[in-house]
Design a protein around this nucleic acid. Sequence first.
DNA 1: CCCAGGGTTGTTACCGCGAACACTGGCCTC
DNA 2: GAGGCCAGTGTTCGCGGTAACAACCCTGGG
Lengths: 343, 343
Amino acid sequence: MLRGFGLTSGSLPGRQASLTDVAVLAGVSHMTVSRVVNKTGPVSAATRAKVLAAVEKLSYRPNSAARALVTGKSGILGVVTLDSTLYGPASTLYGIEHAAREAGYSVTITSVGTPNSSAIAEAIETLRRLAVEGIVVIAPHAAASKSLEGAPLDIPLVAVGGGQEAPVPMIAVDQADGARRATEHLLALGHKTVWHVAGPVDWLEAQDRETAWRQTLKRHRVRAPRIIRGDWSSRSGYAAGQALAREKDLTAVFVANDQMALGLLRAFTEAGIAVPKDVHVVGFDDIPEAAYFSPPLTTVRQDFIEVGRRTFRQLAEQIDGREPAARDLVPAELIVRESTGPR
Amino acid sequence: MLRGFGLTSGSLPGRQASLTDVAVLAGVSHMTVSRVVNKTGPVSAATRAKVLAAVEKLSYRPNSAARALVTGKSGILGVVTLDSTLYGPASTLYGIEHAAREAGYSVTITSVGTPNSSAIAEAIETLRRLAVEGIVVIAPHAAASKSLEGAPLDIPLVAVGGGQEAPVPMIAVDQADGARRATEHLLALGHKTVWHVAGPVDWLEAQDRETAWRQTLKRHRVRAPRIIRGDWSSRSGYAAGQALAREKDLTAVFVANDQMALGLLRAFTEAGIAVPKDVHVVGFDDIPEAAYFSPPLTTVRQDFIEVGRRTFRQLAEQIDGREPAARDLVPAELIVRESTGPR
DNA sequence: CCCAGGGTTGTTACCGCGAACACTGGCCTC
DNA sequence: GAGGCCAGTGTTCGCGGTAACAACCCTGGG
């Protein structure tokens, strides 16, 4: 059995069958075949049957290049993404791909190693050359966001996670909301203050989380300790943990992502600091592993699938010529686990 | 500044400039423009300059659909992948994308939720409709592999991680090699036997690791304990850990991936079993976080970037009509950390 | 009985590009 | 001085599809 691969007994003339080939076999004009294939225009039942038989026999497949040429629509969306396996970007990508495929679009990706202006511009240019109908830039990066300021206006474009003042329509999880929830959760547990291990300065999400943390502390009239900065990696979280272990008034830490929190926990364990007994820790992202850290991590969940879905919708609206909302924030959710449990 | 976006002062006639538009502006024929743009055929320096000026002025961008139509080459590769954020598949995808982009190809992805025959067949069909020049199937799954048996033979196709008897050319990390190294490492530490937490039965990589583990034990004349099976998730590893905690002769466990190992470590911690003091644990994958587990995890590193690179090379050879090797295995590497450290 | 009109089918004209081939001049060779 | 070669350029054609319109058949109403 050739399970649905369409490699039936049809002759193999060395190249794909075209509309005309089908038309000749079915004894009709190529336009009639086109009408059957695309279900446009009226075709009698008898003719349709003949055509479909011929289509099957030749395992005809429409040529998307020809169709794109004449219609001006490629049916392709482009996604610019980081070439990392960071949980957020990867999840978002699948969210977009899923929504796009359901709507009949294909998704082409172009990854960038470091999201600086020229790399992003180049990636966008590459995608445009492919005649994509719209572009998503997943690059929650200051430089990336900045590079979009001069972005082409003649093609639908959406940014994902692009900070407060993105120059193009943007979808993101509400970072400030999540960071506020995390910080207030810790304050509500009675801590005098909350330390923060931040992400890289040039990441907008890191900035947003840091700002919200600082504002929350201020609103509660609490002095903010000095900040420790990591690069999202567990390694940097480990280093941060070693640094924090030397602080004496340390009782609560809000870490900007779960991977760093893992490194932090490891460093604390080595330093003899018990979590949650001595220190409470909150992460960000809720990666699938977070529930199995030692101890299980309280963290802020981001619904990346929903982000992907809304991103596609936003793009589709632009493509269809409707004026979309400029910003769309997906709320965050606090997931409480043992790392902020009873002491 | 419009940093390289090519949105210069040129007129905006409502649609993209074509070769002919450029030709008219430059006062030459469209073929001359084509020759300049593609660097084919001889063009005098003066003419080239005129043409390039016109290209710049109109911000001309070649229409890939038209080019694909006339050349029969789309410059697109298709990748069928799981819509999960599993470390392996995601890393491999970026490896492929990177190699492909360097060679001037674009990569279009189609994700499948569950890799059964019909889903894979459908994904391949979707990609073929897009006129991709070659297809990569990342689906280290028994069903997926099986579905490739009836795969179309008229388009270059490569499988990634497709078990021993893949019906199409295949690239993978040498699972047996990795599992053997892991098991022998534990045996060399003096353990009487080695337990195994396996991946899902329908994953070929899980089968390969399990088989190699079993064979290694047999070669050392050691009786294999009953197997525990998970689904790659930390959650399932946690459950496995709870089950294993009840075994009395437990001293060494080889877990089929790092996420499950994390869950296992968590369960052991809760059960009062110390790693590495009471039990040694080895994982598989070397995800970036593994070095920061508690304790840091001994594991088997898989070079997914290399897999991606070789996958693209394999595909490129098929596209160019060279006959590629049918199988290509990337060696695995054992990374020793504290989870198999001094007791 | 003729004509209007709708359902059905065919014809023609491109879409933007590259392959193949034709054409123009020098310049070199014998 | 005629022929050949080659760098440089142009013309023509068609890739496989869709849009627009033309042409045909059949039916029903006047």
